[in-house]
């Protein structure tokens, strides 16, 4: 029986917690938006063993390049010597050619799996489906990664997301350059992403529109704008949202009704017979 739902109802962290605590084996497929590319995570007995992003499982050589353990040229040379192109063969070629040892490969794959999942914590909408007992293709490498650390880091990222959302609740407002003569711009180093955002700042572009132009998700744009804001470089127009009224104060629990044991036993007896 597949578990299905939406990430806005059951978050990724809750799903990982479920898979971890229930020691589940199977594949978790997440579609960020309807019809979009999917991320697929494979688990065995409650541990992450492989990921496939954009519908494809990366080859071992690609993984090692991505985590910085191989250069593109080294990866190309290894693949050229490969006959069957399985991860097992690619790994053996890396070891036999003294490019990497077994520990390097395992650590590299672990880092790749962790980073793949970390990016998914910024997905707050989308559909998911967990298919029990579905395992990855045999020719690709699997390394078991415990979910406890992943869940803790996921919680931290979710908290960061919530903090950013509190700081920047409204994305449908424009940015403007701050008028603060005390900020020494010469001493500030900006990242490429921050420069890209700055290049779109004017009174007509809202934060959401800038994110759309730059193909950034809400988490990315909020993080960049918040960084620029705290550095004193940009100002955001105040949000028109007002905090919601607090809920009713719960009443103290009343005393349980005085019901005798004999009455309860009569009810149980009758209920069994109906």
């Amino acid at each position: 029986m597949a578990l299905k739902g939406n990430l806005k109802d059951v978050g990724l962290n809750q799903l990982l917690n479920l898979i971890y605590l229930a020691h589940k084996t199977g594949a978790l497929t997440i579609h960020r938006d309807a019809g979009s590319v999917a991320a697929r995570l494979y688990f065995k007995e409650g541990k992450l063993i492989q990921t496939a992003l954009d519908g494809q499982t990366a080859r071992l050589t690609d993984i090692m390049v991505q985590v910085g353990k191989l250069t593109a040229d080294q990866a190309k040379a290894i693949r050229a010597r490969s006959k069957v192109d399985t991860d097992k063969e690619l790994g053996l070629l890396m070891i036999q050619n003294n490019v990497l040892n077994q520990a390097d490969i395992i650590q590299g794959v672990k880092n790749y799996l962790l980073e793949s999942v970390y990016t998914l914590f910024t997905w707050h909408t989308g559909t998911f489906r967990f298919d029990p007992n579905v395992l990855p293709a045999e020719e690709r490498i699997t390394v078991a990664v415990s979910l406890d650390h992943l869940i803790i880091e996921g919680s931290r990222r979710v908290q960061e997301w919530e903090h950013l959302r509190d700081e920047l609740p409204d994305l449908d407002v424009p940015l403007k350059f701050a008028e603060r003569p005390d900020v020494n711009i010469r001493n500030i180093n900006l990242s490429v992403e921050q420069w890209k955002v700055i290049s779109f700042i004017n009174s007509r572009n809202t934060i959401r529109q800038i994110a759309s132009f730059l193909k950034m998700d809400e988490f990315q744009i909020r993080r960049i704008v918040y960084g620029l804001q705290t550095a004193g470089l940009v100002d955001v127009l105040p949000s028109t949202l007002t905090p919601g009224a607090s809920g009713p104060v719960p009443l103290p629990p009343p005393a349980p009704p005085p019901v005798g044991r004999g009455v309860l036993l009569r009810v149980i007896d009758r209920l069994r017979k109906i």
Partner: peptide, 20 residues
């Protein structure tokens, strides 16, 4: 439904002072 109600009744029974 009976199974659910009986489970609840057993839970209530456990909270009632021991008589039998």
């Amino acid at each position: 439904v009976k199974a659910i109600l009986l489970e609840l009744l057993y839970g209530i029974l456990e909270n009632v002072a021991e008589e039998q």
